[in-house]
Amino acid sequence: MKVLIAGFGTVGQGIAEVIGTRQSLFDAMGEKVSIVGAFDSSSLIYGDNLDPKYLVEKKKTTGKVGDKEIPDDVASYIEEADFDILLDTTPTNIDHAEPGLTYILSALHSGKHVITSNKGPLALKFSTLSAAADANGVQLKYEASVGGAMPIINLSKQLLAGENIISLRGILNGTCNFILNRMKEEGLPFYQALREAQDLGYAETDPTYDIDGVDSAAKVAILANAIFGMDVNYYDVVRSGIRNITEDAIALAAEENSVIRLIGEIGGGKLEVAPRLVPMGHPLSIGGTQNMANIITDLAGEITVSGRGAGKNETASAMLSDLISIIRNKE
């Protein structure tokens, strides 16, 4: 299998490294996986069997993954290049989903499988992308787009394939959970807890996507399509964030033996992201930066799954599982 990596930031470097370290696994499956190209926002590199270590080192030392300039028409390059799987790790843009949307569609239309960690294209154009994959007889995989190392999509679609999933509630953004937990544990005002999250690298300089529930709403839209078979997008999700949560609110919740958590919910006619009062001891009352999903099915009842929601290795882990799935399906 020849792979092309689109985007070479933290996530792109992580999956490149994992492909390098998991060669014995691929050998045992009778498949060779080689990186035949990678590009970031300004540069491109291609070759028969690129060394992941070299690519990561090059990016770290020069800020670019390749020596060649990225072509003006990246879509045409993706269509014409000789590879089997596009590993899309471009950043999420919830307004227009670009450039990931164009890259993914170009790969699918030219008969290449796609594994993506980018929420934007999935949250805005899920049905378009699924239809393109089906029409071209290729696979579109996206476990890394929701919850990092929390295996919610493949769990629901494969291990729970015979179940009717009635509802899902989850903590889908670790940054918000960290902030709310710090407010509760240390009595911090919201903006101080946010600053702490930024200092620790959990929150971006512009934290809007996290604290206004944008990131969680994109994930709710993806899960609604992927697990519940709905045809919805990000704008169908009713959304409110946590930036107006006060110390008083946290304290009053504690008097009720509860905590406030930003919860994504699908089911009962709801598609929603909102802060909720969660009883202490409930699975969704956890602190820290973990993601957690609590699903109710008709046969198995309540199932709770958790995992680290972000990070280089965690996202690479999810993309690796998708890569292995494609290799197995090929067999």
């Binding site: 949560i245 609110a249 909102a274 802060p275 009062l277 969660v278 409930h282």
Partner: peptide
């Protein structure tokens, strides 16, 4: 929605 304050519902 009408009065523009934040609602936090019980789970």
């Amino acid at each position: 929605q009408k009065k523009n304050y934040l609602l936090v519902r019980g789970l």
